[in-house]
Amino acid sequence: MNEISLTVDIGRLHLKKPVMGASGTFGFGREYEDFLAVHEIGAIVTKGLTPLPREGNPGVRIAETPAGMLNSIGLENPGVDAFIRDILPKIKKYHVPIIVNISAGTVEDYGEMAQKLDIVGVDALEVNISCPNVKEGGIVFGTDPRSAAAVTSSVKKHTGKTVIVKLSPNVTDISCMARAVEAAGADAVSLINTITGMVIDINKRKPLLGNVTGGLSGPAVKPVALHLVWQTAQSVKIPIIGMGGIMNGEDAVEFLLAGASAVAVGAGNFANPRAVKDVTDGIEKYMRKNNIHNLDEIIGKLEV
């Protein structure tokens, strides 16, 4: 009886491993071929796509911060049509769940993107209502429960895929947001997106980032992310994909205990391009050491 199962279901999405590469840090998966077996990871979450191609924000877009980093990329992406035409055919070969992250400026555009992506090869949608770096769309929907619910309903109406809504930490009460999207039909939530922050160049007396503010990620945000996952887990019944500063198996187990059914590695991939595999191996090691055979024995099992 030494068999360890790392499988977990998120809606109708069946994951062989509970660790995925987070949107915006994992490209479209193929960029990691030199570093790990892409076909063995939990899932690929694509770079955030928008209805039309975007060049992103001007100026400096990356700043290192204590135990983390700020980014203000601004959703640079080739657009949903180019993804379907040029990229999706090339990444289907991994036979790994592909979760497509989508952002749009209107409720209708979210629905239209969902419809376009309701095709073979796409396994789930991650609805981004939490990007802090774009004015239109993004976080506008992620800070108001009614808007978040409207986006969720619109996406659900246009797709048969599992719908995951990505929540922002930049809100007063995340459980209120989580309940709103659950009621609107979301199959799961993922959190956290980055926390708004800034860095100042004191010599120039100017913000270091071209977009003035950026999104903070990396180990610096982990305690905040854990708290928000735990808080959300008390509030909704749908599964949670937890992320925020995960660097190793121990970090991931903390998120699972707090109530996440699966986790994603984001900025950690930049420091360690093999992080998704290392985190997965670390979870398995923890399970073996503690004689745990199934993730259900860990998920949400925090004793408070």
């Binding site: 994992f26 877009r61 980014n71």
Partner: peptide, 11 residues
């Protein structure tokens, strides 16, 4: 300035 060096962060 770049974060990843492998073409994913788009910094």
């Amino acid at each position: 300035r770049m974060a990843c060096g492998i073409g994913v962060c788009l910094g």
